[in-house]
Design a protein around this nucleic acid. Structure first.
Lengths: 189, 189
DNA sequence: CATTAAAACTAATGATATTAGTCTTTGAGT
DNA sequence: ACTCAAAGACTAATATCATTAGTTTTAATG
């Protein structure tokens, strides 16, 4: 390695991730990222091909972390239902801990999506869990509904749409419980 | 009125709305909007105070249209369940017909939110519908879960997360049916 | 007919992402 | 030890963007 690299791709991505989470994506310019790292903006192009490339990489990291948390949580508790509830709470907790970057992953407004194939494979263990509740044949539908409910809930919550009072922790648990009861009832063979 | 106005605020907002829906928000600059209207960009500032102001107004229109559709749909069918299903399908249809602007309304990444008070009042008729199914005391929780499921489903769908096959129309109907069955069972008094 | 003010215009500013071209330093090969 | 190739930093420059300031035009009002 000829010149002494002051940064590498991973620290660049991680720095950008933290800045996005801290200040919001609108406030994060390449100059800010570069200054945080102690270099100038054009130098970043030796590590990423564009700002979009950088943000896409940030989304990839966020997604990997999210699913890593879910799998850890999946081993908490006995029985399919308990494990499922643990996953749901882990999902919501992650979104609350990473409100900006979580939202960014599922914001299709720009082309910042990590390769979809990743996501599809990553979700298979969760589908197996759903199969225990709703039967193999309905597991994909049940999984999609669950992901929708989870993602929709935390997104609306973070967007400030759930401000009319009430304990949101309790309400979330109840909504999940209702959905799980529903799929075992309506979908199971 | 002294000078002949070539545009007014409403046509400006509607033009911007169409351009955003057509080309995506990233491609819509004030110059593009202005050129579409046959004037120059700085002239727009006589009708809106900033680009954010304009996009906020676009979101307001989108939200109003969405809820208008929901209320129309709410009178289709007999009984609370049938009317609820009609609302759900209208919601999804709206999102499919306005994928970009729908997504934009619920993208908190910038400060483009229409005043939240609007949204909260607009949703009351829907809550009354939920009260018929889950009881008055649980109607807010049931409503939040429904909105989460609806928003999450269409968002993930539009973000390309539901591409592993299967009939999404059928799956959507089943997921809704499961949730509705769940709340009447788990939440009702 | 003169005045006024709304609404268009042109010109200018500062920030942005990105590209081109230069300089510096280190590690690999002699 | 000495060269040298190239990675990775730099400066300078470009095009585009939102926004502001200042000017001009024109129609309704007196």
């Amino acid at each position: 390695m000829p010149y002494p690299a002051q940064i590498d791709r991973d620290t660049l991505i991680e720095t950008a991730r933290q800045l996005v989470e801290q200040h919001g994506i609108e406030q994060v310019s390449l100059r800010l990222v570069a200054e945080t790292l102690g270099i100038k903006a054009p130098s970043l192009y030796h590590h990423v091909s564009s700002k979009n490339d950088l943000l896409r990489a940030v989304n990839e990291v966020t997604q990997k972390r999210l699913f890593a948390m879910l799998y850890t949580a999946m081993h908490d508790g006995d029985g399919a239902t308990a494990r499922l509830l643990a996953v749901c709470h882990a999902y919501r907790a992650f979104a609350h801990q990473n409100p900006v970057t979580y939202t960014l992953v599922y914001t299709p407004q720009l082309d910042l999506h990590p390769p979809a194939a990743e996501q599809e494979k990553a979700v298979l263990p969760l589908q197996a869990l759903m199969a225990e509740l709703a039967g193999e044949a309905n597991s994909l539908t049940a999984l999609r509904g669950l992901l929708a409910l989870l993602h929709g809930w935390v997104t609306l919550e973070l967007a400030g749409q759930f401000r009319r009072g009430g304990d949101l922790d309790v309400a979330f648990a109840e909504a999940i419980r209702a959905y799980v009861a529903g799929i075992t009832l309506v979908l199971s063979p």
